[in-house]
Design a protein around this nucleic acid. Structure first.
Lengths: 236, 236
DNA sequence: GTCTATAATTGGATAGAC
DNA sequence: GTCTATCCAATTATAGAC
């Protein structure tokens, strides 16, 4: 039996519990207050960053609070002051993720040239795979596990966004600018080929000896993926 | 610090420890001996099957021996009789995996028509994604974690196989039967788009309402993936 | 081979001083 | 806010009877 605890009720606020509960001290000078707030915020994001790095490799259960704390350079109990428990930490890491993950898709509309739009999308996704491989991996991990925590968001946000973009694709097809492919399958293909370079980076590295960090290899990847996909959906 | 224990020395034998250590009883009739052996083998694979199902969803650390035992319908200590510890169980599950995973790639050679060969490959991989999604997921999980246990095999077996098949692809290109794509990137694209339907099944389900188990959806998927990729690499 | 304890450890979470 | 000291639950793994 999985323990779900306070998952559903996870707070979306930015401040640590204590900061919520007590009134802010009224006597502090504005500068020292803001400095303090920023410092707290920094710590929070240091923890979130460390957590992302570890969760994305070893998963929720493969990572201990101790490890996260060590990597963020705080004590375990200090970490638990900022995040009431492990799962709340995990949820907060995931929250930031989905936005980042959805972002690149937003930017294509029917007015654009499809080759332009899709080519650009491929590049943007590969940039994410290069610069935020941890985000990509954690997203993948969560999917594999059945996305217990993202399921709702998948059904709402993502679904709505994908439907909108599917319309755009269908419009392109009707205008004869694209071969008649199913919009969903095209989107899946785009996601799959671009994410692959982040999620299977070890394999890519083992087989090619290169990573996306290598600028030449990155460009070569962009070109090949673009060529295959764009030619693959060009009207005949 | 990860505990590596006896991972490297994991045995590849098929019989449980006790069967190795003691001499086989000489007085048993042949039929009862073989029945017994088969029964033991059955139990072993029941455990391995249960383990694959759970490990592929929740990972090594997200799965307890208890859960595996329950699912395989044996007691925990009985399970530990067959597999000395959790990691040995995990390694044994992984071992079977790679073979299954590599299999579909073996069957293409320069004599074949590339469209035929690659189209067939796509279908075979999608069949695996449909029938063995757990295998696909566990492979993906292992990759995300940096493939600590498969790294060696990746560097040897997989690499050798991929190099051989890359040659085939290059031969096709030289013969003008294929557009000039980089062989590695083509192979990555093939893996990515086909695995996606297993690893991201939840997402596919959330967005299309369908699974590969749905025969119509399966065919539609095969066609779309084939169309995109084959047209994507057809010579101009 | 299979079972019933039980030892041993890890790791999440709390209490309470400062 | 941060720390030290614990508590407590969950698991892995072993011992030893049958």
């Amino acid at each position: 039996m999985p323990k779900t605890k306070a998952l559903a009720a996870a707070s979306s606020n930015t401040e640590p519990p204590a900061a919520r509960k007590r009134a802010k001290p009224a006597v502090r000078s504005p500068s020292s207050v803001s400095r303090r707030l920023r410092q707290i915020e920094d710590k929070r994001s240091a923890i979130l960053g460390a957590a992302l790095g570890l969760f994305s490799r070893f998963g929720l259960h493969g990572t201990s609070i101790d490890q996260v704390a060590a990597r963020a350079d705080v004590s375990k109990s200090n970490l638990l002051y900022y995040f009431a428990n492990k799962e709340e930490l995990y949820v907060n890491v995931l929250r930031d993720l989905l936005a980042l993950w959805l972002e690149p898709l937003r930017g294509f509309s029917a007015e654009q040239d499809p080759a332009e739009a899709i080519g650009g999308y491929i590049r943007r996704k590969l940039v994410v795979s290069r610069d935020r491989p941890d985000a990509s991996r954690l997203f993948c991990l969560e999917m594999i596990q059945g996305a217990p925590l993202l399921r709702d968001e998948l059904d709402r946000e993502l679904r709505a966004l994908v439907e909108k973009k599917s319309e755009v694709i269908r419009a392109w097809i009707e205008a004869g600018k694209l071969a008649p492919v199913d919009a969903h399958h095209l989107i899946f293909a785009l996601w799959a080929v671009t994410q692959h370079y982040a999620d299977f980076a070890v394999q890519v590295q083992a087989l090619t000896g290169r990573t996306l960090e290598d600028a030449a290899f990155f460009e070569q990847t962009v070109e090949n993926v673009q060529r295959i996909v764009l030619q693959g959906i060009a009207p005949r």
